[in-house]
Simulated scan of single mutants.
Amino acid sequence: MSRIVDGSAHTSAPVLAAYRYCETVTGQQARNFAYGIRLLPQEKRQAMSALYAFSRRVDDIGDGDLDPATKRVRLEETRAVLGRVRDGEVSEDDTDPVAVALADASRRFPIPLGGLDELIDGVQMDLRGETYESWDDLKVYCRCVAGGIGRLSLGVFGTVPGARDAEHASSYADTLGLALQLTNILRDVREDAGNGRTYLPAEDLAKFGCSAGFSQPVPPAGADFAGLVHHEVRRARALFAEGYRLLPMLDRRSGACVAAMAGIYRRLLERIAADPEAVLRGRVSLPGREKAYVALRGLAGLDTRHAARGRA
């Protein structure tokens, strides 16, 4: 699909069109993700868009209005597409632009495509209506739907030569994914309850008197909802602190991308911590100007330097 001439990659028109499709999907639907990947050079930005577009397809199946049996069929069809990508069976003339882009990206970069299998596994866990007794149980789910994405992204970013502690880069990427996912779970606690889903560990809900759930814009009667949120916030902060150790291992623009995406979620987490009940009243988010500020801060390397000094 791409050929190397004089040390640079020359991409065919069909593959470029496939990447443009994925970048359009990313720009229209990615929200926080898009702020980070704008900071990447073209080839990495294209590859990340291909990963996002495939991941979005999986998520849309899980969140769509189809009946569970049809969703399971669609997920297995999507897994079959991933198998074709992995086996080198997708040509540039394939009618699926996401498959074309992902196949090209996986040739350019050492992307561990098994992370996308894990994402499909995670959505299947949602279809089974799984709940989680403990944080250790919830971590399994978070690693499927977010930790794997962190490891996939690291395949695109790579680490700088001679980076200290680089053998742990994959673990840090995974942990940062967990931090982002736990933040998502806190932000979406009422929306998920409305869809019949409960992600927070049952033992945490019981500890803070929140086992009745979150179907109303106020906490359950007698619940220490703020205590529950602050408990999970402390857990997420610790995950961010460990995951931020990845930043000094990345080149400047890849580090800026990760710092931007993680920084947006970290600020979202602190906004939730400041007003825990806000997540029951509506969707907590950051204004666009604040997201742009975080992206510029990442590009300036501020968060990378903080991580290097252990103050993330």
Results as ranks from 00 to 15, higher is better:
Glu118Leu: 12
Phe54Ser: 00
Asp165Arg: 15
Asn32Ser: 15
Pro68Gln: 06
Ser106Lys: 07
Gly27His: 12
Gln29Tyr: 13
Arg143Phe: 12
Cys144Asp: 07
Arg79Glu: 00
Leu152Val: 07
Lys44Ala: 07
Gly88Tyr: 01
Val140Asp: 10
Asp136Ser: 14
Arg84His: 05
Pro41Ala: 08
Thr159Cys: 15
Asp136Asn: 11
Val145Ala: 10
Ile149Tyr: 01
Ser170Asp: 11
Phe157Glu: 07
Asp67Tyr: 02
Thr131Cys: 03
Leu152Thr: 01
Ser106Glu: 03
Ala34Thr: 11
Ile61Met: 07
Cys144Phe: 14
Arg56Asp: 05
Asp65Tyr: 00
Leu119Lys: 08
Leu40Met: 13
Gly155Pro: 05
Ala99His: 06
Ala101Glu: 06
Ser170Ile: 09
Pro161Asn: 10
Gly64Ala: 04
Phe157Tyr: 15
Asp60Gln: 04
Ile149Val: 15
Ala50Thr: 06
Ile120Met: 04
Ser171Met: 11
Gln46Gly: 01
Met125Asn: 03
Val58Arg: 03
Tyr52Arg: 00
Arg151Asp: 09
Arg164Ala: 15
Arg84Lys: 10
Val85Gly: 07
Arg128Val: 01
Arg143Val: 06
Asp94Val: 02
Asp121Ser: 06
Ala53Gly: 02
Ser134Tyr: 03
Leu66Glu: 11
Asp59Glu: 05
Gly114Trp: 05
Ser49Asn: 09
Leu66Met: 12
Leu51Pro: 00
Ile61Val: 12
Ala80Pro: 02
Ser134Asp: 10
Asp121Val: 03
Pro97Ala: 04
Val156Cys: 10
Leu152Cys: 12
Arg108Cys: 11
Ser49His: 00
Gly64Trp: 02
Arg79Phe: 01
Ala99Tyr: 01
Ala169Gly: 10
Pro110Asp: 11
Thr70Ala: 15
Tyr35Leu: 09
Leu82Asn: 00
Cys144Gly: 08
Asp165Glu: 14
Gly27Glu: 11
Ser170Arg: 04
Ala105Phe: 00
Pro112Asn: 08
Val73Asn: 06
Gly27Asn: 12
Arg56Gln: 05
Ser106Cys: 14
Ser106Phe: 01
Arg143Glu: 07
Arg164Tyr: 02
Tyr132Gly: 07
Leu154Tyr: 01
Glu167Lys: 14
Val140Lys: 14
Asp60Phe: 04
Asp94Leu: 06
Asp104Cys: 13
Leu138Gly: 09
Arg86Thr: 11
Arg107Trp: 00
Phe33Ala: 09
Asp136Thr: 14
Pro110Gly: 11
Phe109Ala: 12
Ile149Gly: 04
Ala69Asp: 11
Gly64Val: 04
Ala69Phe: 08
Met48Glu: 05
Glu92Asp: 10
Asp87Thr: 08
Ala99Leu: 11
Gly83Val: 10
Val58Thr: 02
Asp104Lys: 12
Ala146Val: 13
His168Gly: 08
Ile149Pro: 03
Ser170Gln: 10
